[in-house]
Amino acid sequence: MGKTHFFSELPDEQISAARARILEAALALFHEKGFARTTVRDIAAQAGILSGSLFHHFATKQEILFEVMRLTTKALGRRAVAAVRGIAAPEDQLKALVLCELDAIHGEGIHASRVLVDEWRDLEPEYREHILTEREVYEEVWRQVLQGCAVRGLLKGRPPIVRQLLHGALAWTRTWFLPGEPLSLVELTDEVCALALRGEIENLSVKALT
């Protein structure tokens, strides 16, 4: 699916070229206008097909939103697994996961990850349950890594609480952080981990944010 960043990482999905164009178009429009203000006609026009043709691939606009979110969530899980693969030390695994999450928020997959958050309330309840089940792959990686840090006495808090705090703090960076101004994503990752891990502050060269 070429341009849709996260989606292109899922070759096992066997997404047809036509469905890919529709999902790419929908993703761009949901990010730009929001789900509620995007019409099926908008999506079809952006994808370069007739409105009636769209229904050969998706029954409803809601189904398109679900598929965008499902594929995004699956790709995020795959990225998290890959991020910690081959890393032995739990503190280094945590840094890899924090960077992975920050990259989803600020990197090439920005539209997909933000639609996942911003349009969540517009997703129907039965679809939400499926997405939450899919997200378990991603969250299980976080649980294992944070538990590993806790076992070694490195964590400044209980793993479930630290995860929730980190999740909220990292998500909030979209409102104030611009990569490279003045910190890179890697440098911001170091700052975040200094707040979460014992013994990190002494080793961190703190950079002013002004």
Results as ranks from 00 to 15, higher is better:
residue 2 G to V: 09
residue 4 T to H: 07
residue 5 H to Q: 10
residue 5 H to D: 08
residue 6 F to A: 15
residue 12 D to Y: 09
residue 12 D to G: 13
residue 12 D to Q: 08
residue 13 E to W: 14
residue 14 Q to W: 13
residue 15 I to C: 00
residue 17 A to H: 14
residue 18 A to G: 10
residue 19 R to L: 11
residue 20 A to E: 06
residue 24 E to W: 15
residue 30 F to E: 00
residue 31 H to E: 08
residue 32 E to F: 07
residue 36 A to G: 15
residue 37 R to Q: 14
residue 38 T to M: 04
residue 38 T to A: 02
residue 41 R to K: 08
residue 44 A to W: 04
residue 47 A to K: 03
residue 49 I to N: 05
residue 51 S to W: 11
residue 58 F to Y: 05
residue 58 F to W: 00
residue 59 A to S: 13
residue 62 Q to K: 09
residue 67 E to Y: 00
residue 69 M to S: 12
residue 72 T to P: 00
residue 73 T to F: 03
residue 79 R to K: 09
residue 79 R to L: 15
residue 79 R to D: 14
residue 82 A to V: 08
residue 86 G to H: 01
residue 87 I to P: 00
residue 92 D to L: 11
residue 94 L to W: 06
residue 98 V to I: 07
residue 99 L to N: 04
residue 100 C to W: 14
residue 101 E to I: 03
residue 101 E to G: 01
residue 102 L to W: 02
residue 105 I to N: 13
residue 108 E to D: 15
residue 109 G to V: 04
residue 110 I to Y: 08
residue 110 I to H: 14
residue 111 H to A: 05
residue 116 L to W: 12
residue 118 D to I: 15
residue 120 W to D: 08
residue 127 Y to N: 06
residue 131 I to D: 03
residue 131 I to G: 01
residue 132 L to Q: 07
residue 133 T to D: 14
residue 136 E to L: 09
residue 136 E to N: 08
residue 137 V to H: 13
residue 139 E to T: 09
residue 140 E to T: 07
residue 141 V to R: 14
residue 143 R to D: 08
residue 145 V to N: 05
residue 147 Q to S: 02
residue 147 Q to W: 05
residue 149 C to T: 03
residue 151 V to S: 07
residue 154 L to N: 06
residue 165 L to D: 05
residue 167 H to Y: 13
residue 167 H to M: 12
residue 174 R to Q: 06
residue 176 W to T: 02
residue 176 W to L: 02
residue 176 W to E: 00
residue 176 W to S: 00
residue 178 L to T: 13
residue 180 G to P: 02
residue 182 P to I: 01
residue 183 L to Q: 09
residue 183 L to W: 12
residue 183 L to P: 04
residue 188 L to Y: 06
residue 190 D to W: 07
residue 190 D to K: 04
residue 191 E to I: 10
residue 191 E to T: 08
residue 195 L to R: 12
residue 195 L to A: 15
residue 197 L to G: 13
residue 198 R to E: 09
residue 201 I to L: 09
residue 204 L to R: 07
residue 207 K to Y: 12
